[in-house]
Write a protein that binds this DNA or RNA. Structure first.
Length: 622
DNA sequence: TTAGGGTTAG
């Protein structure tokens, strides 16, 4: 009977049958209790198993090991460590096989103190030569970024298997030491798919994207079959590179090799489309997914928000909530950015209330997005309130507040905030300076603006970009110092673009500086010969100075260059479809009806006293 | 032992 029961306990039983056997054991075979617990642990009926375990007076080391490893397998790391402490305190001898699940739990919980104690135990009991003990120990050091200790443990391992190499490679990868990772990889006599994947993600995580792609190619040349982890990593590289062509090649590879498209691969594919601007393809991938977790939903919401389609971001966010997927901080950040873009205070406030009631304001990301939303939607005092209450602020929070103040006309406050930021030693970045220079422009603070611009390189080691130069040109122009603006453009270290010349042009026209206007519009013509607006501007400039001949020459030049004047159109959105309106076009099948209604409206408006000066001659074009 | 999503300007 005992032998029979032992066999039964290791087969898959229903919980009811277990309870019957438990009764039998308690009354007739108490010595079988440990085997009974193991049967329960085997099936991961952990709570029941623990209850019975606690009634055993002196559990054996084997039973402790089973309990600890089951906790660890179920990701119940705290329980695993508690059980280990219990085992150790009860005087039960720790064995080799006790260590791996305990170390894994220490790593997951970053339990440094206990990990150090275990390391001492490993040395004390002489487990140091065991690769199964040393690898998780080394992994712990690698995960906390202590690569010196990790390497020390690695060197002590007698028979090194690929797993311990892979562990150390991923440690170097996370600490940014690409060279050490590659060296270790080259040393390996026996590589696995994991080794290749670790190297690909090492390059990916450290910004060496092309190198990562090369590893992916090389692994195939060396006859290693990429798995779903390889392709997910490579897809995220394509996303970072904005390389749609490569991304599609990877997708073809997945299809041709029948690789499993799990949720992570799908999301990586979706993300690749999003970053390459192919939002509709991303949405198709999203629709194809049979399961979607909060990451997949957030990626799609972010996709719309990042590609300037805020209404769809908001719509998808609502549908995510209706599917009972609880939004997390990432989803909230994206949807708040969508509200900012829409300038929709109503939607923004609704989400803002949710953010505050659910305690998400403690996330720097969410709070920054929230304050940005309030400032873009015009509620600058609420934005300021959120900023002031943020327990932690990063450079983005400061930038959002500075830009928000500048955009809402509080230039002095923006500049004060910039000073405070420097005082508490938050390092400004290039965006900070775009914000602060805009503030100076709005307040007409020419000298201060120039001083701040010059300090970028000297005090903050930031090389000004074309945006910063454009701000300064604007600063000169708005102060009426056109000559200085021109002089500044001539001395710029980067090639001036259309924004720069456009700024100078519009200022020249305002201040009737014909010479500079002519000069800048010629520059504009060089940069964008296809833009009809530039020809018309130049022609008008000549005309206004009564230089008719030159005016005509420009018009003719426009004809010889075959530049077409692009028509301006208006558009409205109806039932999720955008309709464009153009002048002098009757392409819409219902245009007769449209005109009749428009005429009727115009008539009624005229009767109501509205004076129509412009023709109401428009039609549908899509 | 290897894999996916986020905020600020123009």
């Amino acid at each position: 009977m005992e032998r029979y029961l032992l066999n039964v306990l290791h087969s898959s039983l229903h919980i009811k049958q277990f309870k019957q056997i438990h009764g039998l054991i308690v009354t007739n075979y108490p010595t079988l209790t440990p085997f009974f617990v193991q049967g329960l642990l085997h099936l991961s009926i952990i709570v029941y198993a623990r209850q019975v375990f606690d009634r055993i007076p002196q559990p054996s080391k084997i039973l402790y090991n089973s309990l600890i490893s089951t906790y660890s397998k179920l990701s119940l790391y705290k329980e695993a460590l508690d059980a280990f402490v219990l085992m150790h305190d009860s005087g039960t001898r720790v064995v080799c096989s006790t260590i791996p699940p305990v170390m894994k739990s220490c790593t997951s919980l970053l339990a440094g103190e206990l990990a150090n104690e275990i390391h001492s135990l490993v040395v004390k009991y002489g487990f140091s030569s065991d690769v199964f003990v040393q690898t998780p120990l080394m992994d712990f050091y690698a995960k906390i970024g202590d690569m010196d200790s990790a390497k020390k443990v690695f060197d002590e391992i007698f028979m090194k298997d690929p797993i311990c190499y892979n562990c150390l490679i991923s440690g170097y990868s996370k600490s940014g030491d690409v060279v050490a990772a590659q060296q270790l990889f080259d040393e390996m006599s026996e590589r696995t798919v994991v080794s290749w994947n670790s190297m690909i993600s090492c390059y990916a995580n450290n910004g060496h994207y092309r190198e990562g792609l090369r590893m992916f190619e090389r692994m195939q040349v060396e006859k290693f079959r990429p798995n779903e982890i390889s392709v997910a990593t490579v897809l995220s590289i394509c996303a970072k590179l904005r390389d749609l062509e490569m991304g599609l090649r990877v997708k073809k590879f997945i299809d041709e090799n029948n690789l499993c498209i799990n949720m992570i691969v799908s999301t990586a594919l979706l993300e690749m489309y999003v970053k390459c601007g192919a939002v509709d393809d991303a949405r198709q991938e999203f629709e194809r997914m049979d399961r979607r977790d909060v990451v997949a939903w957030s990626a799609m919401v972010a996709g719309y928000a990042q590609n300037g389609r805020p209404s769809e971001a908001l719509e998808l966010f609502e549908s995510m909530k209706s599917k009972q997927i609880k939004p997390n901080d990432v989803a909230l950040v994206s949807v708040l950015s969508a509200c900012s873009q829409l300038g929709s205070l109503e939607a923004g406030e609704r989400i803002g209330n949710y953010v505050e009631s659910q305690g998400f304001v403690f996330s720097v990301y969410v709070a920054s997005a929230l304050l940005d939303m309030y400032s873009k939607c015009g509620n600058i005092s609420k934005a300021r309130q959120i900023f002031n209450h943020m327990p932690q602020k990063d450079v983005v929070s400061w930038n959002s507040m500075i830009v928000g103040l500048a955009a809402n006309g509080f230039a002095k406050e923006a500049i004060n905030l910039f000073e405070k930021m420097k005082e508490i030693r938050v390092k400004p970045n290039d965006i900070t300076f775009v914000g602060i220079l805009t503030a100076c422009t709005h307040a007409g603070l020419l000298e201060l603006g120039i001083r701040i611009f010059r300090s970028m390189k000297s005090d903050h080691e930031i090389t000004p970009t074309i945006e910063h130069y454009a701000c300064v040109v604007d600063l000169f122009c708005r102060s009426g110092k056109l000559k200085d603006a021109h002089e500044f453009i001539r001395k710029m270290e980067v090639e001036p673009n259309v924004v720069i010349w456009g700024t100078l042009l519009s200022a020249s026209r305002i201040h009737s500086n014909l010479e500079l206007a002519e000069f800048s519009v010629k520059k504009l013509l060089e940069l964008e010969p296809e833009n009809s607006g530039n020809y018309i501007l130049l022609s008008n400039i000549y005309a206004s100075a009564a230089r008719w001949e030159e005016s005509l020459t420009v018009r003719n030049l426009m004809k010889t260059n075959r530049v077409q004047k692009t028509s301006a159109y208006s558009w409205i959105e109806m039932d999720n479809k955008v309709h464009k309106f153009l002048v002098g076009d009757t392409s819409h099948p219902g245009s007769n009806d449209v005109y009749r209604i428009v005429d009727g409206l115009a008539m009624q408006s005229t009767w109501a006293g509205y004076n129509f000066e412009s023709a109401l001659e428009f039609s549908w074009c899509s």
